[in-house]
Computed example of a mutant assay.
Amino acid sequence: MCVAENFRALRDAVIRAAMLLGTDRVYFVAPLVRDARTGRVLVEAGLPKVWARHYRSALHQIDPILQHAIHVSAAFIWPRDIDYEKLTDQQRRFMKIAARYGLESGIGVACYGPQGRAGFLGMTWSQDTPASDEMLLAVHQVGQVSFQRYCQIVKENFKLTPLSNRELEVLSWMCGGKSNPAMAKIIGVSRSSIDAYIRRIFAKFQVTDRTAACMRAYSLGIVASDEVKNMVELARKRDEEGS
């Protein structure tokens, strides 16, 4: 799995691993983020094509399995570990649709890679016997190893032109929600200069809008999210209190 040279080879390796674990229905989703509006890459095997089509177009926006994965650090079983009382009507509808297409129950795990990247691996589990702790650990290991290789392949296929210090500064403020006039005032340059920096960032990131640029920056670990900044600030305060 670690030596898979491309996405197809990696997909086939995960399918073989899943079959050894007792299932031939798997799916992988990236990125794993809280913003449900974010487009998702879906790779699946053994699942109906109609489900995959609907998932890519709309169902990913209401998937409670992905949202649950964000909040847990180990592999889990759905629907057992999902609190139905906290699901919205749309999320309950998703679970019914998923069951209709063969995803009534399964094992899922959040997978983490370099530069803050995260994805999700799910395997259906329809056997009569409950999944053991050893099974959950095995799915966790498959997910982590495969996602690490996925990140390597993505990096190999995307060559990023380095950003200048000024472009990094503009990018940071842009991801913080600042407008172009506000950035010009903060940095002390003209509005036209900000426009030029943003065009260069778009070109280097191979995107056409601010949202896509910020998503690329977060996924590549170039800009820290507010959550990471808050964690750093809390850690700094704890260090100061302890000194």
Rank of each mutant, 00 (worst) to 15 (best):
C2F: 14
V3S: 07
E5G: 11
F7R: 04
L10Y: 00
R11M: 06
R11L: 09
A13G: 01
V14W: 01
V14L: 05
A17P: 01
L20P: 00
G22L: 03
D24I: 01
F28W: 15
V29Q: 09
A30L: 01
V33L: 09
L42F: 13
A45R: 08
G46F: 07
G46L: 07
L47V: 13
V50T: 14
A52W: 04
H54I: 04
R56C: 06
A58V: 10
A58H: 10
L59Y: 10
Q61Y: 00
P64S: 06
H68A: 08
I70S: 01
I70Y: 06
F76K: 01
D81L: 07
D81Y: 08
D83W: 04
E85Y: 09
L87I: 08
D89R: 12
R92E: 10
R92V: 05
K96F: 06
I97C: 07
A98Y: 06
A99E: 14
Y101M: 09
E104I: 06
G106Y: 09
I107D: 04
C111F: 03
C111S: 09
Y112W: 12
G113M: 02
P114E: 12
Q115S: 11
Q115E: 09
R117T: 11
A118G: 14
G122Q: 09
M123A: 11
S126C: 07
A131P: 09
E134I: 10
A138N: 09
A138R: 12
H140N: 15
V142E: 00
Q144N: 14
Q148M: 08
R149T: 00
R149K: 11
C151F: 01
Q152W: 02
K155Y: 05
E156G: 03
K159D: 13
N165C: 03
E167H: 03
L168H: 11
M174F: 12
M174V: 13
C175S: 10
G176I: 04
G176R: 07
G176N: 08
K178W: 15
M183S: 04
K185F: 05
K185C: 03
I186W: 05
I187E: 02
I187R: 03
I187F: 10
S192N: 12
S193K: 15
I194P: 02
A196S: 12
Y197V: 02
I198P: 02
F202R: 11
K204S: 11
Q206M: 13
V207E: 09
D209I: 04
D209N: 15
A213W: 05
M215I: 10
R216M: 14
A217Q: 03
Y218C: 02
Y218F: 15
L220H: 12
I222Y: 01
V223E: 00
D226M: 13
E233F: 13
R236F: 11
